[in-house]
Design a protein around this nucleic acid. Sequence first.
DNA 1: GTGATGCTGAAGCATGGACTTAAGTATCTG
DNA 2: CAGATACTTAAGTCCATGCTTCAGCATCAC
Lengths: 119, 119
Amino acid sequence: MLQHHDVDTLFQALAVAPRRAMVERLSRGPATVSDLAQPFEMSLAAVVQHLQVLEACGVIRSEKIGRVRTCTLQPQGLAPLEAWIAERRGEAERRYDRLGQILAERFPTSPNPPSKDDQ
Amino acid sequence: MLQHHDVDTLFQALAVAPRRAMVERLSRGPATVSDLAQPFEMSLAAVVQHLQVLEACGVIRSEKIGRVRTCTLQPQGLAPLEAWIAERRGEAERRYDRLGQILAERFPTSPNPPSKDDQ
DNA sequence: GTGATGCTGAAGCATGGACTTAAGTATCTG
DNA sequence: CAGATACTTAAGTCCATGCTTCAGCATCAC
């Protein structure tokens, strides 16, 4: 039973455009391997390899009936990614709130002077 | 004026563990290039390259003062990723709702006005 | 000034992984 | 049964990119 897949494999899996396209397709409903391969130029073998990556990291699951393998999106497969992103924003917001609080205490007027950038 | 950095470069940028670690560090507050390099074995040049990738895709920004470049997290930098994930789940949930509706129409278990349009 | 610090850019190496082709295994159809 | 379909696996190629070293450039400290 594969669960709690780490963020690393998830990011790596979704860093490849065809794999994201397959996830997008599957978010609109189950599909067979051939269905998923149809929009692509690449060989069927390559598609199968992508699907193996997606299944290994818990984004999809698949079931073979007869000759046909049908893939579906795993409902909570993307959850660790969402959690990671939310955590990053959470940290930043907590910091920002603290900063705002400190600034409000010291300078009870406007928050922020403009900054200049370089390149 | 948020540049629409595409999901592809964002996923690719965050698919690399050291880059994610740098983002995690920056979510706890700004840091210089040397600060960010400190936890790693790799050369400073490699760290700089990672930071360039992160800045190019809008996850961080940086400002150089004197010899020192200070990096900060770009508040909305991860938003396109969140949006992509949310959209995938949104699709799946809409499908699930439609399925529930269809099942409810065909096998009414509760008081249920029949609808004319059918798909 | 000299030297140290903090990056920056360029060139090159080396490994991973996305792809290919080709051959193989079930499964279905007639 | 033969043949077609739907994958599956193995082996090999090739290119992107993460990393290195090294040389260079401001900036700061003395």
